[in-house]
């Protein structure tokens, strides 16, 4: 029971960090409207952060598998392709 509470507690903080970083990214994206290159760089950085977040989160949870890493990489890649199509 204690372990479950600690797990949820850690999960909460991990997701909170993710939400804060993504929100900051959106704010930066909004303010860097003068340059598409800056905007793409922000989007790309968020995608890289997301992959790293996924790896660290699953590692700490003890369920890091190659399949998980590939899933996070593909979702990040989807984001990069979408942004690239609009901004480049």
């Amino acid at each position: 029971m204690k372990k479950t509470a600690a797990y949820f507690d850690r999960d909460f903080w991990h997701h909170l960090i993710l939400i804060i970083v993504l929100t900051l990214g959106i704010i930066l994206f909004y303010f860097f409207s003068f340059s598409r290159l800056f905007r793409f760089t922000i989007g790309f950085s968020l995608a890289v952060f997301y992959v790293l977040w996924g790896i660290i989160h699953h590692k700490l949870d003890g369920d890091l598998h190659f399949k998980n890493v590939v899933e996070y990489i593909f979702i990040a890649l989807l984001a990069v392709v979408i942004l690239g199509g609009m901004l480049i």
């Binding site: 997701h15 993710l18 939400i19 993504l22 929100t23 990214g25 959106i26 994206f29 909004y30 905007r39 989007g43 968020l46 997301y50 977040w53 996924g54 989160h57 699953h58 369920d63 598998h65 399949k67 998980n68 899933e71 996070y72 979702i75 984001a79 979408i82 942004l83 609009m86 901004l87």
Partner: peptide
């Protein structure tokens, strides 16, 4: 064994916001 749906959800939501802003 899979990624977190909630995390993917948040990330895609952020991406949608970015697409709308752009």
């Amino acid at each position: 064994i899979a990624g977190h749906n909630f995390a993917h959800f948040i990330f895609l939501l952020a991406l949608i916001s970015i697409v709308i802003i752009s």
